[in-house]
Write a protein that binds this DNA or RNA. Structure first.
Lengths: 203, 203
DNA sequence: TGACTTTTATACGGTATCGTATAGAAATAT
DNA sequence: ATATTTCTATACGATACCGTATAAAAGTCA
């Protein structure tokens, strides 16, 4: 077995790491949005030349969809993992919302918010695929939250007189509202404070 | 007193009505967003030539801010008026959210959502004035909602064990979430159904 | 070592968009 | 009626952006 960790293909090897440059592309899109980011701007932010970028990821829309997909998966995992394993529904909600607030904000300076809500939303009317990605993300997230409530916080939900679906809908709504507020220039401190206030609204 | 209703100024009169064309500009921005709408597209949607548009409202950013201001004022009035004068906080919330759902949706076809949340949000990082308009709208709306709760639904709030500020924050959050969901392609019927579900989350 | 393959860098043409210049059209005031 | 003022329409230059052609660079395989 001649299994190398990474079988090298013929041809000149790439000088960049896909995960790294995709993260840089995400930052660029998050900063200026999809439409306002020119392809050259993004290539510069990724440290790539324009032809390299075209060769690797295609045009701007394809790159954005790629970035969005990765972001959605990461956000889903981030949210569900922060919602799981707490000792009560209330604490789980608080943990989720506060971590989301930190995720949506920058250590210093104004928050840039959520890539899905803050930059992809206007493009839903022009690009069906983006709209479908957002709808699917929302749907999948709410199903996951509902599952977690059912499996881990059923007793708490009952105490509050709410079904798991209602809890899930409530929490996803608070996340959306946090995503919107984040892009209005709040600092991390302010956003986390807002998240704590929101988390008290469950009961 | 020679007071005419409208003193005609010298010079060639305008062929268009400001309120009408601004509404058409709003529709154009709502459809394609701020950045993706070219100045020519907008002028066509308004039935104006490009120089007329420049002359009347300035460049695209100035026009967008003008439209946003009008939209924000209308939304504020629409929301607060639908929240007032009901017989209970729960009914007021339901009335508010359902009317917002209708406001955010089209009679047929997919919803276009909220101009503030659905199209202005990405531009907050580039244009301070837009960010400030959004922040100010949110702030003013929440203060108005809080006032209404204090004056009309204090008893209901007390019964729910929430302060007027908490109620206000809760409702504004649900509105934001509705604004986000609206732009994911839901029909009016679906969006109104969602609003009704959300309105049950207060208690 | 030499042929081949893939990435990279520079440069280019085509297109769209922006903002305005210029001239004509339509009203008022004297 | 004529002059004046303001709006409208066509056209234009400048710029930015997109996507790619072309050739050099940097590796692998025989």
């Amino acid at each position: 077995m001649t299994n190398k960790i990474q079988r090298s293909k013929p041809g000149r090897p790439r000088k960049f790491d896909e995960a790294v440059v995709l993260q840089q592309a995400m930052q660029a899109f998050l900063q200026n949005g999809f439409e306002a980011s020119s392809y050259e701007d993004i290539a510069r932010a990724m440290g790539l030349s324009k032809p390299s970028l075209y060769n690797a990821f295609g045009d701007k829309l394809a790159l954005f969809e790629r970035v969005l997909g990765g972001y959605a998966a990461a956000a889903h995992g981030h949210i569900t993992s922060n919602f799981s394993g707490e000792d009560s529904l209330e604490n789980a909600a608080q943990n989720l919302l506060c971590s989301a607030a930190e995720f949506y904000s920058s250590p210093d300076g104004p928050s840039l918010g959520c890539l899905l809500v803050g930059t992809a939303l206007p493009s839903t009317t022009q690009y069906d695929h983006i709209r479908e990605m957002l709808a699917q993300f929302t749907n999948a997230l709410e199903l996951s939250l509902e599952d977690i409530v059912t499996q881990q916080y059923a007793k708490d939900a009952k105490r509050l007189g709410k079904t798991p679906r209602e809890i899930s809908l409530h929490i996803s709504s608070l996340i959306f509202s946090l995503a919107v507020r984040a892009r209005m220039g709040l600092s991390r401190k302010q956003l986390v404070a807002c998240a704590e206030e929101l988390s008290g609204l469950l009961g």
